[in-house]
């Protein structure tokens, strides 16, 4: 591939932005090495603290702008958990809020030029999705015991179809963490790679590069939407899965 690119003269490396690098020096990446992952996750934590802790330190009855934003996030996720996962799901509100704030802030910070998008890595999203999967499974068995398995046995279907449906339900249950993680990671990776590809065109086209630059601006707007919607979708799917574990009404 490298030889082809040299022949064509078009050097586009859309995947370079996802490379994990050590922050200091050039050594091998051990599990404890501070890398750009560390840096941008730390920035996400700082942004979260600025957004939700510093802005609310006056505890005003009549909120300032920052406090209004913090209350909006709180109200938005609180309502979502209550509506989707039910009243029992509110016990998991801090957990779901953690997931949402991390995913949302990582997505948004990743859109800063030259930044590093932690949520575009399958390692990160897979851990998030597996945490949700394990939480739902363990909580389901803890709260309902063996009755949790009844969600695979669709009692409203004809008896002859039930084993088949059980297999399908079981497969879809275990595919959940996969689709949950790939959706988030894949969306962000694809969007950032597309922007990078267009940026590569812009470098090679001379005066006509206003076209790819305009396209980048448009895609950037779309990516802002995608970043917010994917955080929302990740969170609401967590609530939907959680309803299976804590709710009494299931499909």
């Amino acid at each position: 591939m490298a030889t082809e690119e040299h022949a064509g003269g078009l050097q586009i490396h859309p995947m370079d932005q996802f490379v994990v690098k050590p922050l200091f020096g050039d050594g091998p990446i051990e599990w404890y090495t501070p890398t750009n992952v560390t840096l941008w996750m730390g920035i996400a934590v700082l942004a979260m603290i600025a957004l939700l802790v510093l802005s609310t330190r006056r505890r005003a009855i009549v909120p300032s702008r920052g406090q209004s934003v913090a209350e909006m996030f709180y109200g938005f996720i609180h309502k979502m958990v209550e509506d989707v996962a039910g009243h029992e799901g509110l016990k998991f509100f801090p957990y779901i809020m953690t997931l949402f704030m991390f995913v949302f802030l990582s997505n948004m910070l990743g859109l800063i030029p030259m930044s590093f998008t932690t949520t575009s890595h399958i390692a990160v999203t897979a851990v998030l999705a597996l945490l949700v999967f394990l939480t739902v499974t363990l909580v389901g068995f803890y709260r309902k015991g063996i009755g949790f398995l009844s969600m695979f046995w669709v009692s409203s279907a004809p008896l002859i179809l039930r084993p088949i449906l059980a297999i399908i339900e079981l497969i879809s249950y275990f595919v959940r963490p996969l689709s949950h993680s790939i959706r988030l990671g894949g969306n962000l990776m694809a969007g950032h790679a597309v922007i990078k590809v267009f940026a590569g065109f812009a470098g090679a086209m001379g005066v006509a590069s206003v076209v790819p630059i305009a396209a980048i601006a448009a895609i950037y707007g779309l990516e802002l939407l995608v970043a917010a919607v994917q955080a929302y979708v990740f969170t609401i799917l967590t609530c939907v899965y959680l309803r299976d574990a804590v709710g009494d009404a299931h499909h």
Binding site: M80, D83, I182, R183, G186, N187, V233, I236, L237
Partner: peptide
């Protein structure tokens, strides 16, 4: 909410082929 959940489910399968 249902709209977004439905879109997310439909999109996931497309993301698989992208993957």
């Amino acid at each position: 909410a249902n709209l977004f959940v439905g879109i997310a489910f439909a999109e996931a399968l497309g993301i698989f082929s992208f993957l």
